[in-house]
């Protein structure tokens, strides 16, 4: 279609306009042209043709650029939506069933705590299902959903889970992709604390440095644990999401040392417009 349109413009429309310009000039002269006036008419035709083709070329280039931009945008959106949908769907069934088990246990021994846990679970699920995967949220909102998640896991882990956070107040209003933090915390619990008899401390830092927001999360691990075969499917998803959102401007790095696992997210510090 595009090719046809281009040929039509170059070989039909442009010559037609040139011819029309020549005829118009002829008509304006009001009489059959003199021999000396022929070059003028021809010149008008040539100039009209060149102008038209030039204009058409400009038009074509613009259309091409717009189409490419649209394609890129659509591809990015599609990819992002797919990734986000995957991440949303990745609410680990393990987590849900364990939470329900805790509720069942609490109803017998501590009904009030059981009720509270139902409510916490509802809050967390609502926030998750309502979050629009394509819209950035403030770090403050992301922390809220993370805290809801922690409230549920705290019932299960009891005193094996200690949560610490050091958040630069400047970081709170900055924008992050939704559900970027919670999977990291989940990872720290499932692959870290859950394997330690006495649990430990999960520590979150949020720092704003120059134009960059840096989030880092530390969790203890088994001293000699080797990277497990099914390590961080969650981490890979978070990394892909950062990439989809910011390209090379963001990155996820992992630092492993004996007994400690650290994930660091760096992304551009963007506030609400």
């Amino acid at each position: 279609m595009g090719v046809f349109l281009r040929l039509l413009r170059r070989y039909v429309l442009a010559p037609a306009v040139a011819l029309a310009a020549m005829l118009l000039a002829w008509a304006l002269l009001g009489q059959p042209p003199l021999e000396s006036e022929w070059p003028l008419l021809l010149g008008i035709g040539v100039v009209a043709y060149l102008l038209m083709t030039g204009w058409f070329q400009l038009l074509a280039a613009r259309e091409e650029a717009a189409a490419a931009a649209l394609r890129a945008q659509q591809a990015a959106l599609l990819a992002r939506d797919a990734e986000l949908a995957a991440l949303q769907a990745r609410l680990r069934p393990h987590f849900l069933f364990n939470a329900l088990q805790s509720v069942a246990a609490l109803i017998g021994s501590n009904p009030n705590a059981g009720r509270q846990m139902c409510l916490d679970l509802a809050d967390f699920l609502r926030a998750r299902f309502e979050s629009d995967p394509t819209r950035l949220v403030t770090l403050e909102d992301e922390l809220r959903i993370t805290h809801q998640y922690l409230a549920i896991e705290r019932v299960r882990f009891a005193d094996r889970l200690i949560w610490q956070e050091d958040i630069d107040p400047k970081a709170l209003p900055l924008l992050v992709p939704p559900l970027i933090l919670q999977p990291l915390v989940e990872n720290a619990l499932v692959h870290g604390l859950a394997r330690l008899e006495d649990g430990g401390t999960v520590h979150l830092h949020a720092i704003v440095q120059a134009d960059e927001l840096m989030l880092s999360l530390d969790n203890p691990t088994e001293p000699r644990s080797r990277p497990a075969a099914r390590k961080g499917q969650g981490l890979a998803l978070v990394r892909d999401r950062l990439q989809a959102q910011y390209g090379v401007a963001a990155r996820l790095t992992i630092e492993r040392s004996s007994g400690n696992f650290r994930v660091i997210l760096r992304m551009p510090a963007q506030g609400l417009p």
Binding site: N98, Q101, S102, A105, L106, G108, F157
Partner: peptide
């Protein structure tokens, strides 16, 4: 079971 609640539920 490593979870106190899971143990107490089973015990109950």
């Amino acid at each position: 079971d490593d979870e106190p609640l899971a143990r107490s539920y089973l015990r109950e």
